[in-house]
């Protein structure tokens, strides 16, 4: 499953249980982020009770509506649907905003595993 535009690319690899986010996400509000949120939620439902990895290393930019989409996803998995899912986020340690976002997500879901490379 893939959402591809000239600015960003979100790919869900079912076999490897990984959603990879690339490019710049500057969409306008929750409505424009809905397709990406749906992709993430679908991936989470399919992969439970195993693991799902969200790889944001090649994500260059994320606006606050994008942060909202990510936090909504994590809260949905952990609190709203209470899925049995090992959620992993891979980010670059050297990119400050990626590290901050990963830590904020872990705060919302303490079982979330953050891999900083």
């Amino acid at each position: 499953m893939e959402i591809k535009t000239d600015k960003y690319n979100i790919t869900y690899d079912l076999a490897n249980a990984t959603v990879t986010c690339k490019g710049s996400l500057l969409l306008n509000g929750a409505k424009e982020y809905e397709p990406i949120l749906q992709l993430l939620n679908q991936a989470a439902e399919q992969q439970q009770p195993n693991s799902l990895t969200i790889d944001i290393r090649e994500l260059k930019f994320l606006n606050s509506s994008g942060i909202n989409m990510m936090t909504k996803f994590v809260i949905n998995v952990s609190d709203i649907k209470s899925l049995e899912l090992n959620l992993i986020v891979i980010a670059y340690k050297k990119i400050v905003w990626q590290e901050k976002l990963s830590k904020n997500l872990r705060r919302l879901m303490p079982t979330l595993l953050v891999k900083l490379e």
Binding site: A30, K31, S64, S65, T71, N76, I80
Partner: peptide, 9 residues
């Protein structure tokens, strides 16, 4: 926000 359908975060 996680429990809301609002477009504004």
């Amino acid at each position: 926000n996680a429990k809301s359908d609002s477009n504004v975060s």
